[in-house]
Design a binder for these strands. Sequence first.
DNA 1: TTGAAAGTTGACACTTTGGTCAGCTTTTGT
DNA 2: ACAAAAGCTGACCAAAGTGTCAACTTTCAA
Lengths: 210, 210
Amino acid sequence: MARAARDPEERIRERNMRLIIKAGIEIFARKGFDGTRIAEIAEASGLPKANVYYYFSSKEEIYTAIIAHLLASWDDALKYISPEREPAEAFKLYIKAKLEYTRKNMAESRLFASEIIQGARFLSRKDREHIRQVTDTHVAVVEGWIAAGKMLPVDPRHLFIMLWASTQFYSDFEPVAVDALKKPRLKADDYEKAAATITETILRGILRQP
Amino acid sequence: MARAARDPEERIRERNMRLIIKAGIEIFARKGFDGTRIAEIAEASGLPKANVYYYFSSKEEIYTAIIAHLLASWDDALKYISPEREPAEAFKLYIKAKLEYTRKNMAESRLFASEIIQGARFLSRKDREHIRQVTDTHVAVVEGWIAAGKMLPVDPRHLFIMLWASTQFYSDFEPVAVDALKKPRLKADDYEKAAATITETILRGILRQP
DNA sequence: TTGAAAGTTGACACTTTGGTCAGCTTTTGT
DNA sequence: ACAAAAGCTGACCAAAGTGTCAACTTTCAA
């Protein structure tokens, strides 16, 4: 039988799919779904267009593969919001993790933002249900903290939106962030300063005063 | 001479250009620049495609006309950040105005977000210089408040980013906001609740405690 | 070594796109 | 009333787009 050996067999396939996905992330992020041309993805990944179609049968298939991969690695930053932690510590870690993630995965972050702005056309019901459920879990944790008197009674859903929005901004809207901060480009310490400002302001805003 | 009478002459031109711009805002917002088809704008504005080209000589011209119009009406919400006001009052009004504006001009807001995410390709140097300058002015106001001991020493640039990000989110990323808030769609009182939460949290975060 | 599966790709078919244009109708100052 | 300017539009391109395919090369278990 001609089945290639497990390891090397998967290697070519995986390598090329990874190249395509990687190029796709960059270009979908910059151009959105409708604006992206398969030929451009092909060029950026160094493969002929027909080869791209050998692995993915349509533009939509590439796009949804990216979205799926992205959502899978998405929940990670939220793991810090857990009931065992003190809110101050939890939010601090969350903000830091979120900013680091978006900084190191700018294209992914923008692609997701783009998808949402364009109406979340390719987020499945299941995807959205998942988002809702993850939010619910963390809302419950915050409600627990409020009930325990560890936090002021702030609406947890709006609070999460504030955090999400503030942390996404630096990567998603980098050109504006750059202008607002008067920097030629954002570097690690700009993200650290952002984390500090967001953390300090939000914590003072939600914790009982000492 | 065949020059039409000022008033009615301008009326047709203006009406049609307005129709095109209006349709353009919706579609550019949903599809981004590259993803938008002139034929779609034509259809949405109820005019034949050739008629669209009678008023605008290219896709880019429609797009930049929209951006220009948008930036012009952009500064308004920031007028509340002025040195005569007390910070508490100023930020409260600013947050309210910004949320109201984005709610009532969702498509514009998304179009701008889309433009930024896609790299701000059509923002001119002048546009960006303008943004920088407006920011500087308001940063100076905040610095004045800090120097006067009316506010805690919060980095004003990061603070403005927090405010901008938090207020934009509800319109730009509505599908996620809807899921996070567990509402079928956002209504006026969701925006009011958002304004209240953002205002309360931020104010506690930046004002000296009484 | 071999042959079947996996991978590769230039060339092609078909559709959609941005943009043009020639000739039409409507409007309007005189 | 009328001519010139303004407005309108179906039909048309060239270019660019998505997706297909048949024929080729590479890989690898037996």
